[in-house]
Computed example of a mutant assay.
Amino acid sequence: MTATDPKGGGSRPSVCFLYIAQTHQILHSLPIAIALARGWPDVDVHIAATAQEHLDYVRDLLETLKAPPIPMRLLPPTWLRELRLKGSSTPPKALMLAANVHRLGRYDAVVTPERTTALLRKLGVKDTKLVYTQHGAGDRGGPFEPRLKQFDLVMAAGPKQRDRMLDEGWVTQKTCAMVGYPKFDIIDALPPSPLPVFPQAKPLVLYNPHFHPTLGSWPKWGRRILERFAADERYNLIFAPHIRLFEGADPRSIEALAPFVDHPRIHLDLGGPAAIDMTYTRAADIYLGDVSSQVYEFLRTPKPCLFLNPTHADWRGDESFHHWLYGPVLDDIEGVVDAVASAQRGHGDYVEAQRKGFAESFDLRETPSSVRAAQAIVDRLPSGRRRPR
């Protein structure tokens, strides 16, 4: 269904769910769009994206979920949409925002799972409410930053995220709403993606390095970790890094990954659906990672974790590494496979910390998170407070 531009100033408020970054962010805000379309018939919900593959993915999700029809549009111009800067799988975010500033400024609210959209304020958008849903509930300090002040509403998954944003002055009680984790709603409603088939059933390790250039484990240790698992027959391994590490490239095109493409005990996924829809975090028996927020999705069920510290960061007492309390931390990879086995045996020492950390990260209630998030948006629309039907 093709969207038309909102006219502005009408009796029906209009809300645009905007996608200008990588595909993995869609699952963090689309469930809110669906809840809004289902529950508030007097609100016009639109979806806009800068890549056709985003709209294709959204369309498939809406059809699978039997969601109400939501108008969608591919943002112009075509030449800019087709531009890819080095290392990016999406058009330049800032340039696409600038090219569409007047169009986006006609909505009553623009909802986004990423922070670059705060640029709309500098581009002259004053009356449109800007809403940031977040796209994870991790501890890394990077997302806690000044652009949050440009949003009229910043959502928090739980008290840990909310309190840190408040304490550091990025949000106020008025501009922050603790809504839970809408991604869980859509994941629970969707069938999981197909899992890789390994020749033999073995405990399954998920290696999930982050793209951070220094805190991420891939630059210093990644290939050696794969070599050690390739040489050890105790485990099957899924290598599913943060999608931004390789931007969904073909593993055969990456020199460090090519030797493992057809390995019987190693599966490589650089950004497919299973890498973003919690298929792997739900299926894996052990988590091996560094600073990715995906560890919290993995810990929806307490399971063994092993964390990698290639830069010997002084992490104890640093809230940006709080999740490293949920399993042993490795400062040397020579015995990484043995360390995984040790983490399995000693998991009981970390179960209580994992449960507590999950509860601090996600404020989950009987009312679905996506409905709570939709209500928080509606509460800030210019036509006043509305309640779902």
Rank of each mutant, 00 (worst) to 15 (best):
T112A: 12
L74F: 00
G158R: 03
V111L: 03
V43Y: 07
R84A: 00
V58K: 07
L104S: 02
G141L: 06
N100V: 07
H54G: 11
L83W: 04
Y132I: 01
E82G: 08
R38C: 09
V131E: 07
L65V: 07
H54S: 14
L153D: 09
G87I: 15
S89R: 15
T64S: 11
D108K: 05
R121M: 03
R73E: 13
D56L: 10
P68C: 13
I47V: 10
V58E: 06
W79D: 05
A156Y: 13
Q150W: 10
V58M: 07
A94G: 04
A99L: 08
K66P: 11
K160Q: 14
V101M: 09
P68S: 00
M96Y: 01
T112K: 07
G105K: 11
D152K: 04
Y107V: 09
D139N: 13
A99H: 07
P113K: 06
L61C: 09
T133M: 12
T50P: 00
P76V: 05
R106D: 12
P143A: 10
H135G: 08
V131K: 04
A118N: 00
T128N: 04
D127F: 05
L62E: 12
L83F: 06
L62W: 00
A51E: 12
M155S: 08
T50G: 12
L119M: 12
K126S: 10
K126R: 14
G105Y: 00
M96S: 06
R162A: 14
D42G: 11
G141D: 14
L119N: 10
E63G: 15
L75F: 02
K129M: 15
K86P: 06
R121Q: 09
R84H: 02
K129P: 08
T128G: 11
R103L: 12
G39F: 08
W79H: 03
P159M: 02
L123V: 11
S88E: 14
